[in-house]
């Protein structure tokens, strides 16, 4: 993976010199592993991530949160109504979070009202695209409550393409978690028994799930990912956004 990333990104600050001369390459990106996941409900949104930070087969730390409150108090994050998760290259993730946080707070000072999630989502896209040719190497997910009080979730690629969704997994174990979510949140491949003969069966319609069910799915998704992916583990950070504010909880995950 490391080598692949280097080849495809192919970024280096060194000028090519005559062959035979030893060259030093500087690779501006590292993959710090980990995974994040977001699910929305009718009146809440959940963003979750594991807290392991890796480089290669090494564990840098077992407690590096990937989910951040945006636009709140400097230290405590109090007063925030938007949450951002970043996974991929941690340094870019931190930089991006700092930038968005500043933007959202400046907005509040200048306009005297908090930024809506949809506005913040568009702004994040712009920030990412501004670095189109030296991207923030992260897969970001933004969550909050929309103007109607419904859970809102936006997911991004590293250069700012974004989409509002019901659920999204990102990072190292995204390929493991996402099909599970398709099945359990959007009820993909599920049909209503007895609703028709053979292929005329009616598909089970996706509807917003209650908070407790979603919490359970998030924990199941991560315990599953931990079992099969070495870059995921240690602790599960779960941030729940409701009209009453933001609640943050940690659960232990396997540390092997």
């Amino acid at each position: 993976m490391d080598h692949q990333a280097r080849e495809t990104v192919g970024y280096s600050f060194s000028e090519s010199t005559a062959s035979g001369v030893k060259q030093h390459g500087f690779y501006p990106y590292t993959d710090n592993g980990g995974s994040t996941l977001g699910i929305t409900g009718s009146d809440f949104a959940i963003l979750a991530g594991d807290t392991r930070s890796t480089s290669g087969y090494n564990i840098n730390s077992r407690m590096v949160p990937k989910v951040f409150k945006i636009g709140g108090d400097d230290e405590t994050g109090e007063g925030a109504n938007i949450v951002l998760s970043v996974v991929g290259f941690a340094a870019d993730g931190t930089a991006l979070k700092e930038r968005l946080d500043t933007v959202v707070r400046m907005y509040k000072y200048q306009h005297g009202k908090p930024m809506t999630v949809s506005a913040c989502a568009q702004r994040l896209s712009t920030i990412l695209y501004q670095k189109r040719f030296f991207p923030y190497y992260v897969h970001a997910i933004l969550a909050g409550l929309d103007e109607e009080g419904k859970g809102a979730l936006y997911s991004y690629d590293p250069v700012g393409s974004y989409e509002r969704e019901q659920c999204r997994a990102a990072g190292a174990a995204a390929s493991l978690i996402m099909p599970f979510l398709d099945n359990q949140v959007n009820f993909k491949n599920q049909y209503i028994p007895g609703s028709g003969e053979g292929h005329a069966l009616a598909a089970k319609k996706a509807e917003p799930l209650p908070l407790e069910t979603v919490k359970g799915l998030v924990r199941d998704a991560f315990t599953s990912a931990v079992e099969r992916h070495i870059e995921v583990g240690d602790n599960l950070q779960m941030v729940i956004i409701t009209k009453d504010g933001i609640q943050e909880v940690y659960h232990p995950l396997k540390k092997d």
Partner: peptide, 11 residues
């Protein structure tokens, strides 16, 4: 196989 690991481990 990645996707199957996820769904099987979950279901």
């Amino acid at each position: 196989s990645d996707q199957l690991f996820g769904t099987c481990e979950g279901l």
